[in-house]
Design a binder for these strands. Structure first.
Lengths: 269, 269
DNA sequence: GTCTAGCGTTGCGCATTACGCAACGAATAA
DNA sequence: TTATTCGTTGCGTAATGCGCAACGCTAGAC
């Protein structure tokens, strides 16, 4: 049989059925619910092949069948695996408590994001004390130019790389989404100088967020912590104190990851 | 090669490499970090086989390598997949059917509450079969120290936090409302030990409720499920079976949210 | 009510595919 | 230095997973 299309660059071996099984999971993640025939179609394989893959995944709890002879969807086994993932990511573990404190202090929702494939991947979230429960962002990937977290992550790249990444996704979400590369570049410079980023109504109208960088022992930006809430609430003094609190939290997480703050502006080489 | 141990009953087909790949994920989830040789050992296959499986998973982001030629761990791709699962698995939707069954089984009213701003927020309710229809609690926020649900939610906090939260609202509703912080602290300890809470005439005279905790995949208490009814009806054996049923329901909802009950006191190393 | 179309499911036999083997290069320890 | 152990890779084989076709079932059309 011919190559299955992927044609990924060399380096790592692959196992056909495992690769296809992961594709099944992604198809289900995207579609929500699928029948065997539909999966087979998207995969480009025979019905029976798709059935065996789904069946193997079902036995292990990564996929569930809604009813006997019914459609398939992702299973709770994945949640357990993801929980194990975050539990082992020292980043999440170190930041959990501090993010919780930040959520209590500001009363708003706190998110932790990392760079993943030219987007901001939300890996952890602590809900604020507000009555209206916010959307759960964990697991979502949001374009970098439209969020405060994204700007922080972008600010860690050279301008050329940042431009390239954003250039590939010039999507606008609201009238406030930064559409001009020049404006974005200027904002990134400011983020580097001040250490934080703000986004007001840029991803969703009515949603404001502030974010600060988390650095590891090498000084690399490995993540971004944000505080987000309704725009009407995050203004003036409240916004200012949110910025301060977010920067302090991100700094403390960085310190726990081994980062040493520059002693003064008299350093560097 | 011999069977890979599972030997699950017939019914569903399986695909060897997919099954092994899932085992790899579970091994990594359990161990945190593993080398290829170690995985091969646990899997009972050759090093090269384990390598190809891990490699296939790595290409798709379900597994990450800490450094070039380093150990492997679970990857963030899993978080994305799990997010698609949790999007579907929202608390209310997942618990609805089970709460309904609990209401039928006990004949009393079932409520689902979450923590919101230092109070118990009632987010769902299923009326019991009883003729006298209870008050609809959905949307209301009740102080934590006066209800069984509240005590369950409180029991998930450190005692200091719980004391602080309750200290701010020393409100009494009836003669039975717990007014002493010492008594409450003792009750919370019991809730943690037994896994359920009871409140008799503490919020309203004539109203008795029992509640148990709902946990997510991280083990955090995310909600509480209660059965409540007239005090004259919820005594003795009826109360006992209500407690059992509530605990079972809360446990099952937790399981659907990805929670794994502690295996027992017989852990492995 | 009957018939058709489409679904998820299963046995079969072939060849594709994934396996074990052995050797390689690098890193760590002695 | 040497020796051991790690992750990684090419190769030949046969085990394994694939496509095919048929089955039972449900649901909709007529």
């Amino acid at each position: 049989m011919s190559n299955s299309g992927a044609g990924q660059s060399a380096g790592a071996s692959t196992v056909q059925s495992v690769d296809r099984a992961v594709s099944v999971l992604e198809i289900l993640a995207h579609a929500g619910e699928c029948g065997v025939t539909e999966i087979a179609g998207e995969l480009g394989v025979h019905k029976s092949t798709a059935f065996r893959l789904v069946s193997a995944l079902e036995r292990r709890g990564l996929v569930e069948q809604h009813a006997e002879r019914g459609k398939y969807r992702l299973g709770v086994g994945l949640i357990r695996l993801a929980a194990a993932t975050t539990a082992r990511l020292d980043l999440v573990q170190e930041s959990r408590g501090l993010c919780r404190a930040l959520a209590v202090q500001t009363g708003e929702t706190v998110n932790l994001t990392v760079l993943s494939d030219d987007a901001a991947l939300y890996v952890d979230q602590v809900a604020g004390s507000s009555a209206l429960q916010p959307h759960n962002w964990v697991g979502q990937r949001i374009p970098l130019h439209a969020t405060s977290n994204g700007k922080v992550l972008l600010s860690a790249m050279p301008d050329a790389d940042a431009a390239q990444v954003v250039g590939r996704r010039p999507r606008t979400f609201t009238d406030n989404t930064v559409a001009s590369l020049a404006v974005l570049t200027a904002q990134l410079a400011e983020v580097r100088a001040t250490g934080y980023a703000v986004a007001v109504d840029e991803l969703e109208v009515g949603l404001t967020a502030v974010a600060a960088a988390v650095r590891n022992a090498h000084g690399d930006v490995v993540a971004s912590i944000s505080v987000s809430g309704p725009t009407f609430r995050l203004t003036g003094e409240r916004l200012g104190s949110a910025i301060t609190a977010t920067r302090e939290t991100a700094g403390e997480v960085s310190r726990r990851l081994g980062w040493r703050p520059p002693l003064d502006r008299a350093l560097d080489g």
